[in-house]
Nucleic acid binder design. Structure first.
Lengths: 163, 163
DNA sequence: TCAATTTACTTGATTATTCACGTGATTTGT
DNA sequence: ACAAATCACGTGAATAATCAAGTAAATTGA
């Protein structure tokens, strides 16, 4: 008697006849993430900031300057896309782009004073959303979630998609 | 002596001076979700299917027919957007749209035989990705993740953004 | 009953994103 | 040393998504 698989998955995979979408982990992952972005989008609209701008400002708050490549990777967005986002952010005086002095292929993106002011307001908004989102969660639950998400991402990036 | 907050959050909120982005749960949520979609996008491209098409087919595999509103809500996408997606899917003979006989405001979306055939192939691809994504996870860990994501989404949708 | 709302989309115009390609700068290999 | 490869973008053209407005059908309330 042989097992069907070496590692039993808690939920049936999409190609299983009894697959149940509403229980599917990756469906729940996406739907939750998009719901979050949808809700953030609404409150951001109220202060006239779009989601990509908020995300870039947040990254620059974390690491200033950042390169275009870094921003692209950490937002999981095509480089050409964030180039465009940066262009309109520069028009709005939220960031400045300067060619790196050490490697003139790379563009360093700096947050401006105005950008920093906007970011401070956005942080308060994001903080409120965070508290709402994790209401009723214990510290260890939040911790667990972060660890699980990290491991999941590592699995997804390591060995892109071996056959 | 008073506590700083009633419920202690495991990770500091965005508006805290010692905030650390790489540990932030919602940043990890989005980055993981987008990484997943990015990887899926690559393998889907190889079979010439775009991500929105795949998602709609998956929903129709789960519930056929679905209404435009259902598809919009379950994908967390603006209705006008999925209307467009459905138009191009109909052009590709993957779905059919019919006005509901009981309520002629609603459009029922049916998967076609061709759509079902394409979906079967996509399910195999999605299954491979799923196994890769959760490699090394125990059943209970996967279970935990689904429960946490569900609770998070409930928090995000209930009382949209009080204050 | 019938005017006012609400619901469930659809569509035209606008905006955003991505693809494919190009450019100039650095690295690599011999 | 120097040709070939790679890297880090930027850009024009194409595609996709969103907003605002509109339509037709159902529902609500006086």
């Amino acid at each position: 008697m042989t097992d069907k698989s070496q590692t039993t998955l808690a939920f049936l995979p999409p190609d299983h006849p009894d697959f149940l979408l509403d229980d599917y982990p990756l469906y729940n992952l996406n739907r939750t993430s998009w719901t979050y972005m949808d809700e953030m989008g609404k409150v951001l609209k109220a202060v006239d900031v779009d989601a990509p701008t908020w995300r870039v400002l947040t990254l620059l708050g974390d690491r200033n300057p950042s390169t275009v490549t870094e921003l692209s990777q950490r937002t999981v967005t095509k480089m050409s896309t964030i180039t465009r986002i940066l262009i309109r952010m520069e028009k709005d005086k939220l960031v400045e782009r300067k060619s790196s002095p050490t490697d003139s292929r790379v563009t360093e993106v700096f947050i401006t004073d105005k950008g920093r002011m906007v970011l401070e307001k956005l942080k308060v908004i994001a903080g409120r959303m965070y508290r709402t989102a994790f209401e009723g969660f214990s510290d260890s639950e939040i911790n667990t979630m972060v660890q699980l998400l990290r491991r999941l991402r590592e699995n997804l990036t390591r060995s892109p998609y071996l056959e």
